[in-house]
């Protein structure tokens, strides 16, 4: 009889707990912005005086405008923003990589992207280290845990370590981000 009374009491208490709110799927979001918004491809220009070609003194690049985000990055730098949102924090890894396999070319000669480096100015909590393009695909620049945003200003330099033929060399690197 005591058992019956206890069971009835438990039932009564449980019955008063009626309304339950449940969170279904939580959203995820990963995004990458390099330079200007809206899919624009920004141009970094290195001008090497003829007398200095191949002398090993780096030449800093120039970037029109404010590097993609007015008032945030210094002049002649490129703004990079990587964002990884998911729940809970630190449950996923955000990885930024770059493909620099296609060298710069003037139509005749080429310059590998290993001749270009960058100096980072980062903002906590995530920083992209300064470095040099590897000339390969999938060069990992930084990895960090989700629920953070990485904001960087990159200053690119042409290392100017080889004598190359005269002309204008064009090339493109492609950045990508994943958060599996």
């Amino acid at each position: 009889m005591r058992w019956l009374a206890t069971a009835a009491l438990l039932f009564c208490v449980a019955d008063a707990t009626a309304i339950t709110i449940v969170v279904g799927n939580t959203p995820t979001r990963v995004s990458l912005r390099v330079g200007s918004p809206g899919g624009q491809i920004d141009l970094v220009t290195f001008t090497v005086p003829a007398a200095n070609v191949g002398d090993g003194v780096p030449v800093a690049g120039t970037v029109p405008g404010q590097g993609g985000l007015a008032g945030f990055c210094p002049a002649n730098t490129v703004y990079v923003e990587i964002e990884g949102r998911a729940s809970p924090a630190n449950s996923r890894t955000v990885t930024l990589s770059v493909d620099s396999t296609q060298p710069l070319s003037n139509g005749i000669d080429t310059i590998p992207f290993t001749q270009i480096d960058w100096i980072s100015t980062g903002f906590p909590p995530v920083s992209i280290p300064s470095g040099t393009f590897s000339g390969g695909a999938g060069q990992v620049l930084v990895s960090f845990q989700n629920s953070r945003v990485a904001l960087q200003c990159l200053r690119f330099r042409y290392l100017n370590q080889s004598v190359v033929g005269a002309g204008t060399y064009n090339g493109r690197v492609v950045y990508g981000v994943t958060m599996p």
Binding site: I21, A86, P88, A89
Partner: peptide
Amino acid sequence: FDGRYIQRGLQFDP
């Protein structure tokens, strides 16, 4: 919510 502190299946009764 603060997404850093929740996970799918969070549930509660007011």
